[in-house]
C-alpha cells in the first residue's frame, strides 16, 4: 500500500523533475546529459520575446487577481446568509463559470467582444472625428476581464466556505456593543477572512499566470508566456523551454504551497 502510494507520487513528480534536471543540461540535445550548465536560463532570460511575454503574463495575472479578490470578497459578503432566488441564481452562475470548459469560455468571449467592439468602434469614431478616436481591441483588457471572471468564482467559493464556518456571534457581539457596520467589518470580519482572501489572490494569480486556453482566444495581438511556450514547442523541443518551464513551475509551486498552508492553518483556527 505504502509502496503503491510512493509509486503514484513518483508518477506525479517525476516529469517535473525530469525537465528541471534537463534544463541544467549543457548540451543542446535532450537525449543525453552532457554536463551541468545554467546557460539555458541565461539564454531564456535574455530573450526579449520571453521577457515581453513574461511581463504580459505578470501584468494580466496581477490585475485580474486584484480585481477578483476585491469584487469576489464583496460578492461573498453580499451573499452571506442570503437565501431565495438571488442565491440560486448566484450559485448557478458560479457553477457555470467554473464547470464550462475554458475553451468554450474563450470562444464565447472572443465572439462576444469582437462583435461588441464592431458595434462600439464606429460610434467612438463618430464621437471623436479626425481619426483619433480610441479603438477597442482584444488585448490586455480582454485577457484581464476573462481571467478575472474565473478567479472571482474561485474567491467567492473559498470565502463562502470560510464565512459559513465563521462564528456569527462575534459579529453580533460587535453590533451589540454599538460598533457601526464598517467598524465591525474592519475589526472583526476582515481579520477573520483575510487568510481566505490572500489564498484566493494567490490561486487567482497562479490560474491566470498558467492559463493557456482562454488566453489563446482572447489575447488578440498580445503574447502571454504560456502562448509563447506553446508556439515554441510546435517549432521543436529545446533546453530553453525546459528552463522556462522549470521557472514557471517553481513560481506556481511556491505560490500554491503558501496558499494551501494559509488555507489549511486558517480552517483549523477560525473554522469549525
Amino acid at each position: 500500500m505504502r509502496l503503491y502510494a510512493l509509486f503514484v507520487y513518483v508518477f506525479l513528480y517525476l516529469p517535473i523533475a525530469v525537465i528541471a534536471i534537463f534544463s541544467l543540461n549543457a548540451g543542446r540535445h535532450a537525449s543525453q546529459f552532457t554536463g551541468f550548465s545554467t546557460q539555458w536560463y541565461a539564454k531564456a532570460l535574455s530573450n526579449p520575446f520571453v521577457m515581453e511575454a513574461l511581463w504580459t503574463s505578470f501584468v494580466v495575472a496581477l490585475c485580474s487577481a486584484i480585481i477578483a479578490s476585491i469584487f469576489g470578497t464583496m460578492a461573498a459578503l453580499g451573499l452571506q446568509g442570503m437565501k431565495g432566488r438571488v442565491r440560486v441564481l448566484a450559485d448557478a452562475l458560479i457553477y457555470v463559470a467554473v464547470m464550462v470548459p475554458g475553451i468554450v469560455i474563450g470562444i464565447a468571449t472572443l465572439i462576444a467582444l469582437v462583435t461588441l467592439f464592431g458595434w462600439i468602434n464606429p460610434l467612438l469614431a463618430l464621437l471623436a472625428p479626425e481619426g483619433r478616436a480610441p479603438q477597442l481591441a482584444m488585448g490586455y483588457g480582454s485577457l484581464i476581464a476573462a481571467h478575472a471572471l474565473f478567479s472571482m468564482s474561485l474567491v467567492i467559493i473559498i470565502l463562502r466556505a470560510r464565512l459559513a464556518g465563521m462564528d456569527r456571534s462575534l459579529m453580533e457581539a460587535s453590533a451589540d456593543l454599538y460598533a457601526p457596520p464598517l467598524a465591525t467589518f474592519r475589526q472583526v470580519t476582515l481579520p477573520l477572512i483575510f487568510p481566505g482572501i490572500l489564498a484566493g489572490f494567490l490561486l487567482s494569480f497562479t490560474f491566470s499566470f498558467d492559463d493557456f486556453i482562454i488566453a489563446f482566444f482572447v489575447a488578440g495581438s498580445e503574447t502571454t508566456l504560456p502562448i509563447y511556450v506553446f508556439s515554441s514547442i510546435r517549432r521543436g523541443v529545446t533546453p530553453e523551454i525546459n528552463a522556462i518551464g522549470t521557472m514557471v513551475l517553481a513560481v506556481s509551486l511556491l505560490l500554491l504551497i503558501v496558499a494551501q498552508l494559509i488555507l489549511r492553518s486558517g480552517t483549523r483556527k477560525g473554522g469549525r
Partner: peptide
C-alpha cells in the same frame, strides 16, 4: 494547479 502546458510538455520530452 500548476501549468498543464508545462506538465504535458514534460511528457513530450
Amino acid at each position: 494547479w500548476t501549468s498543464i502546458l508545462i506538465r504535458s510538455y514534460a511528457w513530450i520530452f
